[in-house]
Design a protein around this nucleic acid. Structure first.
Lengths: 115, 115
DNA sequence: TTATATACATAAGAAAATTATGTATAGTGA
DNA sequence: TCACTATACATAATTTTCTTATGTATATAA
C-alpha cells in the first residue's frame, strides 16, 4: 500500500473483497488487479501484502493451494466459510466509516434539521 | 479513536476539518463534537488525540492559545495558513480513497464498459 | 465519599504500514 | 552479453498511528 496515508487498515478489506469477486487469486495478481482498478492510485506493496495474507490465513479466513506455473510457484488464496462471513462485516465497517466521515465533514447535512 | 480499525490515518483529517468548520476548538471539545456528530460511533481517545494535536502544531499546521476558564486551563487550537491549505489536500485524499475503494468493491460499475 | 465530567498529558505496547533486501525465473532492449 | 523489467514469493528493520493504562487537577452530583 502506498501514496495515501488514509488507507491504513483497509488492506484486509481489499483482499477479502477481491477474493469474493474472483474466487481464487495469488498475491502478485492482487497487486496488479488493484493497480488496474484504481488507475495506479493504490499500489499494494509486497511488504504489506504478504504479511497480511499470512495473518488472514492464520486466522482461518483464507486457505491456500500452491500451483506450479511455468517453473514458477504460485500460491493461490481463497475464502474459507468464516472468510466469506468476514467480507460482510468488513463491508459494513467500511460503509459506517464513510458515513461517519461524511457526518463530520458535512455537518450541515443533518437529518435532525429536516422538520 | 476506537471501535473501527479502518480509520487509521483519518484522525488528522478529522481534526483539520473540525477546525475549518469551528475556527477555534480545544481538545476535549473535539472528542465531544465527534461523538455527537457520529452518534457515538467514533470515539476519539485522549491517547490518540493529544499526540496528534502536538504533531500538527509541530508541523506548523495549528497554533495554540491557552485560556483560563473557571479555574481550568483550556488549550485552543486553530488553523495556520498552511493548515488551511492542508485541509484541501486531506479532503482530496479522502475523496480519492473513497472512490478507489468503490472501484475495488464495485468493479462492475466500470465507466470503460459504457460504449 | 465515590463516581462522573471536564481538561490536559505521557508512557508502554500493539498493529499495520513503509522501505529495504533477498531468492529465483523469464523476457526484452541496448 | 548485460542490464533492466516483470513475475512471484518472502522477511527484517523501522516508522507511524493507534489502544490501553496511568497520572494530575478541578468541579459536581449521587
Amino acid at each position: 500500500m502506498s501514496n495515501s496515508n488514509l488507507i491504513k487498515g483497509s488492506l484486509q478489506t481489499i483482499i477479502l473483497k477481491l477474493l469474493e469477486e474472483n474466487d481464487k487469486m495469488y498475491g502478485y495478481e492482487m497487486t496488479q488487479k488493484v493497480k488496474e482498478l484504481t488507475a495506479g492510485e493504490i499500489k499494494i506493496t509486497e511488504g504489506a501484502l504478504y504479511p497480511a495474507l499470512h495473518k488472514l490465513e492464520a486466522e482461518g479466513l483464507l486457505t491456500t493451494e500452491v500451483q506450479q506455473v511455468d517453473n514458477r510457484v504460485r500460491k493461490y488464496y481463497s475464502l474459507t466459510k468464516s472468510g466469506k462471513k468476514e467480507v460482510s462485516t468488513k463491508m459494513a465497517e467500511l460503509q459506517a466509516f464513510v458515513e461517519n466521515m461524511q457526518r463530520i465533514i458535512n455537518p450541515n447535512i443533518n437529518p435532525s434539521l429536516k422538520f
